[in-house]
Design a protein around this nucleic acid. Structure first.
Lengths: 235, 235
DNA sequence: TCCCCATGTGACGAAAATGTCACAGAATCA
DNA sequence: TGATTCTGTGACATTTTCGTCACATGGGGA
């Protein structure tokens, strides 16, 4: 919809059905992408390795090599592991979806799909990957804070946090190693001159810890002082 | 509590009461701040101009020159306007508080106050100002997006936004000038593969617009396409 | 002009987030 | 050990947020 100003993004399309291929290629080109095509899994893998694209659109059902295997190969090869993959699948079944994502695909579309939607997903995925790639990120062990998209990931999985929990954890990550008194957290997280009880912080810490699972120990209590964020040994 | 690693922050304390002065100076020093003292308003103003501090702690009742006037002078002088000011006031009345903030004070404390609380406020204010000063900010006309503290200000006033509204506005500010289709907003704001209706976006845009007041026009509707963020003329 | 479709608006129920208790458990100190 | 203080935990009421309707409004094309 809005072509990039600089170099156009390069998409590798791995698809055997000529009709789908033409439709998708046409629309991708129209949207300002540069497109390379492969008609079977092996060729696709080869193309991805020789000229790494910015993103791969991969059909699940392919001759020569199954889409799943192509995806797995891509993700296992260091040179191509970072390339986002969108799977195309004819089966609208949930199992396929889950399997696709477990294989490392970053998104999937179920045929039939609208080209418009595919474009949107490609743009969103590229944006997402680039946000994660740019310097706007704070990594502390298995914790990744990405302010650009308001997300904190733990071991690669997005944490589902409420607004307060997000702010709390973000602040603790920034001030890791420092003991943060409850008053300070109230001030900076709850905002200017809040009226809430100091113990409320404890409750939110509990909720936060429960969402951190095995890493709950990274939020330590300093009796009489406050809380510290510090990587725990248990991983 | 946790002294800065680098250069210690410089606080200018303008206070005439010797008892309060000693108490505050002692605690500030203990907290790792370097402190300069002035005993009346004129001297304070002079000190601030000759050696601009990182922050000013200012008593409201002073000989020679009223605290209000000192504050106003500081804020009107380009050289000192950016320095955060914390007011100390003996009167626990709301009117004083509001007046203090309207004069440009960034925070205030009512006597008697705990030194600990003052330290926390100073640290919070310094942090806040620095977050705003660092490059982590996106300014579009009267709109300021500060990801560091999850805040969007409009004409200097903080907007009270929900999580979704914040993400929506942040994204629109980043993509200002581009028409954003509802599907894209759903994808990127609501997250991965949301199940909500497309019209829901409209409702949130309405709520957002109502919070923008006179600047509601900055969110334009593009019939059949989506929404654009673009500065409106009405200011 | 009238009709059709997209968007604005007010309202409402459902769901989620939030703040506070009361009590249990743990750590610290006498 | 015992007492005291601080923190963890489960539960609860309340508030806020969220998504969706039904209807009003308004622009654009036939």
């Amino acid at each position: 919809m809005a072509p990039e100003a600089g170099q156009s993004d390069h998409i590798l399309l791995i698809e055997d059905d000529p009709d789908v291929l033409d439709l998708v290629r046409y629309n991708l080109n129209k949207a300002g992408f540069s497109v390379t095509v492969a008609r079977d899994g092996l060729a696709g893998l080869k193309a991805a390795r020789s000229t790494p694209p910015d993103l791969v659109v991969l059909d699940l059902m392919l001759p020569e090599m199954r889409g799943e295997d192509v995806c797995r190969e891509l993700k296992n090869d260091g040179a191509t592991a970072a390339i986002p993959v969108i799977m195309l699948t004819a089966k609208a079944q949930t199992e396929d979806r889950i399997a696709g994502l477990e294989l490392g695909a970053d998104d999937y579309m179920t045929k039939p799909f609208s080209p418009r939607e595919l474009i949107l997903r490609i743009e969103g995925l590229l944006r997402r990957v680039r946000s994660a790639g740019s310097g706007d990120k704070l990594c502390v062990g298995p914790f990744e804070l990405d302010r650009g998209i308001f997300e904190i990931r733990l071991d690669g999985a997005k944490l589902e946090l409420t607004a307060i929990e997000f702010k709390l954890l973000a602040m603790m990550m920034e001030k890791r190693g420092e003991t943060l008194p409850r008053e300070m957290l109230l001030r900076d997280v709850w905002g200017y001159r809040s009226v809430v009880d100091s113990r409320t912080v404890d409750t939110h810490m509990r909720r936060l810890r429960s969402k951190l699972g095995a890493h709950a120990g990274s939020i330590e209590t300093v009796r009489g002082e406050g809380y510290v964020f510090r990587l725990s040994q248990e991983s």
